[in-house]
Amino acid sequence: MSSWTWFHRLASPPSFFRLADRLAPWLGWIALALLAYGWINGLFFAPEDYQQKDAYRIIYVHVPAAALSLSLYVGMAVAGFVALVWRMKLAESALIAIAPVGASFTALALVTGMLWGKPMWGAYWVWDARLTSELVLLFLYFGVIGLWQAFEDPRAAARACALLAVVGVINVPIVKYSVDWWNSLHQGSTILKMGKPSITAAMAWPLFASVIGSYLFAGYVILRRLQNELLQREAGTAWVRELMGKSRV
């Protein structure tokens, strides 16, 4: 079987639905284990930071949320590009499934950043380059969600959302490199950078676990949302009727 044939089969809604049904539980359970390890060790057992004291512990929630806010937008833009070029229904559904999850993690990154900023900067919010560009990212997510709800035709809605997602991806490198390009109160990367992390192993391992666990959790939620989206869009097809018939048995 050629790679293109395999990709074509995977992209078909019934094939992807069955794959997601097998994969999602594994993602969910592994994510739960990693998050439990990361949060328990990071919030209660990791050593105190010599400068920020216990206030730094919010990184075990903030850093994964901030990383996901960027990664999920890139994933949404890739799905949007595929939807625009090849008109794939699966890509359109993925775009819509990712948007609320990405918006949630972006909002979480902003809220935890504000809570971290208060003891560090003396204010919950400053119009810093990193914070401002992250807020723009949240508005882009909201724009995609709003466009989806504004159209009655799902194909037309998906095209509009895809276009916004692709154009808006230019903000991702701005968020990522804002602390390097402009004078910023926001500190630089600690573990998500090239080279050796800037924190000790006792702090870093729970953070690694929290980041990976958060990515797996996001993957689990997106797969389940994508399954629901496929069921709604393919409601009249034979494979959905067959699936619904089996679920009633």
Score class of each variant (00 low, 15 high):
Ser71Trp: 14
Gly102Arg: 08
Leu115Val: 12
Ile30Pro: 00
Trp29Met: 07
Glu48Phe: 06
Ser104Cys: 13
Val126Trp: 13
Tyr60Trp: 01
Leu27Pro: 05
Val74Tyr: 08
Met120Asn: 15
Leu110Cys: 08
Ala97Trp: 04
Ile98Phe: 02
Ala107Met: 13
Leu34His: 02
Leu34Glu: 00
Ile58Asn: 03
Asp49Arg: 05
Ile40Tyr: 12
Pro25Tyr: 00
Gly122Tyr: 07
Phe44Arg: 11
Leu68His: 06
Val111Gln: 08
Pro47Trp: 03
Ala33Gln: 13
Val111Arg: 10
Gly28Val: 06
Leu32Lys: 12
Glu48Arg: 15
Gly42Asp: 00
Leu68Gln: 09
Ala94Thr: 14
Ile58Gly: 05
Ala109Arg: 07
Ala36Leu: 10
Ile58Phe: 08
Leu72Ile: 13
Gly28Asn: 06
Met76Arg: 08
Gly122Met: 02
Tyr37Asn: 11
Val111Leu: 12
Arg87Asp: 11
Ala97Phe: 09
Pro100Gln: 09
Ala31Phe: 10
Leu70Thr: 15
Asp128Arg: 07
Val74Lys: 07
Ala31Leu: 11
Leu95Lys: 10
Val101Gln: 04
Ile59Ala: 04
Met76Phe: 03
Trp26Gly: 15
Gly117Ser: 10
Met120Trp: 14
Ala24Ile: 11
Met120Lys: 15
Leu90His: 08
Ile98Asn: 01
Ala91Lys: 03
Phe105Met: 07
Leu35Phe: 04
Gly42Tyr: 00
Phe105His: 09
Val126Thr: 14
Leu95Ser: 03
Val101Phe: 02
Gly28Lys: 11
His62Val: 03
Ser69Ala: 13
Ile96Ala: 14
Leu43Glu: 07
Lys53Ala: 15
Trp121Lys: 09
Leu110Asn: 11
Leu110Pro: 05
Met76Ala: 11
Leu34Val: 03
Met88Cys: 10
Leu115Ile: 10
Ala36Ser: 10
Pro25Gly: 01
Tyr60Lys: 00
Pro64Ile: 02
Ile58Cys: 03
Gln52Pro: 00
Val61Trp: 06
Leu70Tyr: 15
Pro25Glu: 02
Gly75Asn: 02
Ala109Pro: 06
Leu84Ala: 09
Gly102Ala: 01
Ala67Lys: 11
Leu70Met: 14
Gly28Glu: 07
Leu90Met: 06
Pro119Arg: 01
Ala67Gln: 08
Leu84Asp: 13
Ala77Gln: 01
Tyr60Ile: 00
Gly122Cys: 05
Ala77Phe: 01
Phe45Asp: 07
Leu95Gly: 09
Ala94Ile: 06
Ala123Ile: 07
Ile98Lys: 00
Leu27Glu: 03
Asp49His: 13
Ile59Trp: 09
Leu34Asp: 00
Leu110Tyr: 12
